[in-house]
Design a protein around this nucleic acid. Structure first.
Lengths: 205, 205
DNA sequence: TGGATAAATGAACAGTGTTCATTTATATTT
DNA sequence: AAATATAAATGAACACTGTTCATTTATCCA
């Protein structure tokens, strides 16, 4: 009842205290420095306590990855004000790319690292709700485009996935530092120009 | 002279013995199982000996990543027989994607992991020769396309980079298992259809 | 207040990459 | 051939990682 409720709340509070410390370490010092011991000492609890609230490290990283999706989702919501679907697709891509450049470690966690997914499939497979929701926004917008006559001859899912792949590819190559070595000049400029080329291709359809 | 040459050769032999063991462990059991101790015990040498031939683990992983590029480069060479540049671009993308699906760990090492790049930039920055050569092949083919009138209004580098990003994005999302969770159905089919959509967009130009 | 339940602890375990004084093997010189 | 100098190989030790679990501490309830 009232008591057990309060207890549950306190449990949740300590859990989010752990998550907060993990998040701070993660965004400020990267994944390598985000160790269980450092998380524990940051909130002045022992190592064992962390394992009372999280099954393992993947559990924490999965929670962290969910927070990232909440942030990205919130930023995407703003773009629902863009009425023209074609413009919205372009804006979504730009926002997605910008999110990746500004939060490289978080992006990596959300879309590349195995850890948060490894936690998931021990519970339920092929049910990556965060990804589903985000991809769903893109798919819905692409659908609107098709309804207005764009992308003739295309199928919704494959095309949407191809679009996602393109922007993800740009983000991924940037984060893994594969652009610097291949092309002299500022990586940000390379990305901006490549995105323009991509937009040109989209508009041709 | 003769002696020091032979000694140098023996040194190289042991080095490639180490690399061979590392490669075997890597392709058969993944990066997690590829530890210095396991490499050493596989060739029946001690841990310290490995460090006599390789500066650190990143050094080994960089050598491994170079081997991967030799393989990919060899496979790409075959496609030089495809005379029509547009067909060659499409074939290059298909080959690239196939390589990623068949050698997921190696692909990850070549295009995503930080380790091999971390070794590089301690020696010389923005000189990723393996990547440069591979991207160079794509760029040259795209250039041929443009010379024949395709991709009007596009710039060579940004367009080539956008193409690379698209196929890399597909490969990356597949390897990091972000497709299963988002889309019911066989990931390979999803990828094949998405690549078809991408090819459609290319041909529209 | 005393006993039961819940929460927190931190030493211990098995693993990682890396170093370096010591030992073993090879080569050179006397 | 023996003694010495050089090169190569060793593996224990260090500092770190995630994870577990017997033990201690705190809280609750009768």
């Amino acid at each position: 009842m009232g008591i057990s409720e309060r207890k549950a709340k306190e449990k949740e509070e300590l859990k989010s205290l752990i998550l907060g410390a993990a998040r701070k370490l993660f965004v400020e010092q990267g994944i390598e420095q985000t160790t269980i011991r450092k998380i524990a000492s940051k909130i002045e609890y022992s190592v064992g306590t962390v394992y009372l609230y999280y099954k393992d490290k993947n559990d924490i990283l999965h929670d962290l990855h969910t927070q990232g999706f909440k942030q990205l989702g919130g930023e995407m919501k703003v773009l629902m004000n863009v009425t023209d679907p074609m413009e919205r697709v372009k804006a979504l891509g730009r926002l997605y790319l910008q999110f990746a450049l500004e939060n490289p470690d978080m992006y990596d966690l959300m879309f590349s690292m195995k850890a948060p997914m490894d936690f998931l499939d021990s519970v339920q497979k092929d049910e990556w709700n965060e990804g589903k929701a985000t991809f769903g926004v893109l798919k819905a917008t692409v659908k609107e485009c098709m309804d207005k006559g764009h992308f003739a001859g295309h199928q919704l899912e494959p095309l949407s996935f191809a679009i996602w792949s393109t922007v993800h590819g740009m983000a991924s190559l940037h984060i893994s530092q594969r652009i610097e070595g291949v092309d002299l000049g500022d990586p940000d400029t390379v990305l901006a120009n490549a995105y323009k080329a991509f937009v040109m291709m989209l508009e041709q359809e």
